[in-house]
Design a binder for these strands. Structure first.
Length: 378
DNA sequence: ATACATACC
DNA sequence: AACTGGTATGTAT
């Protein structure tokens, strides 16, 4: 959503003479910290270096798929009759009124976002990195998830958040939502003052810098909402660039998307978001997966599967859980993701049972050149 | 209705 | 991209 409001990036209709500008995934200039950098030059260099790689080809495949979805949407849009449009416009208007009636402005939510979290945590444990350009990664690619970082950093800021909201929501490793309504009322302080206080406490107690936003619900506290693919579709197929557009063209959204998707778009347009603290739900599945350099070596693949099955079994038993359907996840050397599942007559949790069924699923897919295997129990 | 596969967040 | 887990959706049976 922030991207939609700012409306700066031109994701479509890029001249063919500059192909690197259409390649959005590896390098996006939307991120902060790009001041004083020759953006186009960097983008071109990254493009030249990525071109032809397996990963790159898969990204192109996904971009083509996205274009197909957009074209498909355009086509369906063109087939709507005047009557259809009037009909769905009515539906949209009614739905907007209903959604508006649910607006709750009684709560104050605060969204915290740790700045450059992984790099910042790494720098804490290795101060010599301070001021140097760095990325967290390995296996010839840039990644982030790092268990050391997790343990170190997550614990670091959590006590601060808890002082303001015992039930704060961890949205991801580096993001959290706090309901600060009571804090504001009891101490008679403004929300922006609380935001500043939290930022200062986090820095004093962890050395990590974070940003904090405030709003009457979680959507507005974060100013978030719509992802890259959806944004592209909305922009190019519907010419929807702003929240206002989402509401004005709600009829088309209701006509072409499922009711729940249309509701989602209209809510974003209205700035409606979660105001309650959902109670922690019970876990419904447990999974694990590993990436490695792509191989066809079946002994290696079965060995990986055995390791994953053992870990999954241990994790399940740690929480006293069992699963009745077992899903095998594969990613081919060309980055295509596949899942294969089997539902069993009885729940299982032993590593032998898991491996037995996972092996059968894998066997049916071989030979194949794979770069990831995963297993999931539901 | 159930199982399975995929996309998206 | 990595890894986890949930939801939504579509398809086949």
């Amino acid at each position: 959503m922030s991207k939609m409001v700012k409306s700066e990036s031109s994701s479509s209709d890029v001249p063919l003479s500059k192909p690197w500008q259409s390649y959005q995934t590896v390098y996006t200039n939307a991120k902060a910290g790009m001041d004083g950098v020759e953006k186009e030059k960097v983008q071109r260099i990254v493009y030249e270096m990525s071109k032809g790689s397996k990963y790159f080809e898969n990204e192109e495949r996904k971009e083509a798929l996205m274009r197909q979805r957009t074209d498909n949407m355009r086509e369906r849009l063109g087939k709507l009759s005047i009557t259809d449009i009037a009909h769905y416009q009515k539906i949209a208007e009614r739905r907007i009124t209903e959604l508006e009636a649910t607006r709750d402005l009684s709560r104050i939510w605060l969204h915290v976002d740790m700045d450059a979290f992984y790099a910042a945590v790494e720098t804490l444990s290795n101060p010599s990195l301070k001021g140097k350009p760095m990325a967290v990664g390995g296996m010839s690619m840039i990644s982030t998830a790092n268990y050391e970082a997790r343990r170190y950093g997550v614990r670091a800021a959590m006590p601060v958040f808890q002082r303001y909201d015992l039930n704060f929501i961890s949205a991801s490793l580096d993001e959290a939502y706090l309901d600060i309504t009571e804090v504001c009322r009891e101490r008679d302080v403004r929300s922006d003052e609380v935001a500043e206080e939290i930022r200062r406490s986090v820095f004093e107690e962890t050395g990590l810098i974070c940003s904090a936003g405030v709003g009457p619900n979680r959507l507005l506290a974060k100013i978030g909402g719509i992802g890259k693919v959806t944004e592209h579709i909305l922009r190019t197929a519907f010419e929807i660039d702003t929240c206002k557009d989402l509401l004005e063209k709600g009829g088309f959204l209701c006509a072409l998307f499922s009711p729940s998707s249309a509701d989602f778009f209209l809510s974003v347009g209205l700035g409606l978001g979660g105001t309650d603290t959902p109670q922690a739900r019970l876990r419904k599945s447990m999974s694990n997966e590993r990436t490695f350099s792509a191989t066809e070596d079946e002994a290696f693949l079965y060995q990986k599967l055995a390791e994953l099955s053992h870990i999954l079994s241990t994790d399940l038993q740690k929480e006293g859980l069992r699963g009745r359907t077992l899903t095998l996840k594969l990613k081919t050397a060309s980055f295509e993701v596949q899942t294969r599942a089997v539902t069993l007559p009885k729940c299982i949790c032993s590593s032998e049972d898991i491996l037995l069924h996972a092996k059968k699923l894998l066997k049916a897919e071989l030979p194949a050149s794979l770069r990831l295997i995963g297993s999931k129990a539901v």
